[in-house]
């Protein structure tokens, strides 16, 4: 019962906090995360959205709509280039929902799903940035300097935050 549960308000508030924490983490740990040329980008918003799909068993949440809202805020507030993450975030929700129908979600299969999702987010973000000339780096250095470290950081964050986030969802539900 999505309408009656605390998730109705709890989910978007959590989404916004995760979105803003991404920026705060990047700011506070900028000397570690943006240690050029290697760059690690935290994607806590994606973690929040993906775990919502994983824990979504008998309640269906309008995740696609909230993903669009999160993408719009991300584009306007963080990057200033509208039209990239507003499409990527809903796509991630869609892809994750398809994958969940094939693989029953648990901690380890969730790790696999999250791996694919982060690769998609970073890959599509890179392609879009190349198209509008925000970056000029080559595909191979993207793989080595951005995708690799980003995957490492985000999978570590998944392992650390999987159970706390599940506890939050259970409390909200």
């Amino acid at each position: 019962m999505y309408r009656l549960s605390k998730l109705r308000f709890g989910f978007p508030i959590g989404l916004l906090i995760m979105l803003l924490l991404d920026g705060s983490l990047s700011h506070i740990f900028s000397s570690q995360m943006f240690n050029y040329p290697t760059v690690m980008v935290s994607h806590l918003v994606v973690l929040w959205l993906v775990t919502a799909v994983l824990y979504e068993e008998n309640v269906t949440m309008p995740l696609g709509r909230w993903a669009i809202v999160a993408g719009a805020i991300f584009d306007l507030y963080y990057t200033g280039i509208f039209g990239i993450y507003i499409f990527i975030f809903p796509l991630i929700v869609y892809v994750t929902r398809i994958m969940v129908t094939y693989i029953s979600p648990n901690f380890l299969s969730g790790l696999l799903i999250y791996f694919i999702d982060i690769t998609l987010v970073e890959g599509l973000g890179f392609l879009a940035s190349r198209v509008v000339h925000m970056t000029v780096i080559s595909g191979s250095s993207f793989l080595v300097n951005t995708l690799g470290p980003t995957l490492a950081l985000n999978l570590a964050l998944y392992v650390i935050l999987y159970f706390p986030i599940r506890w939050v969802y259970n409390w909200l539900n």
Binding site: G23, S30, F34, Y77, G125, T135
Partner: peptide, 15 residues
């Protein structure tokens, strides 16, 4: 004061 930093590898921006 710097509030936050863009979590993206393509844009080195702070707010």
């Amino acid at each position: 004061a710097v509030i936050t930093r863009t979590p993206s590898s393509w844009q080195n921006q702070v707010v």
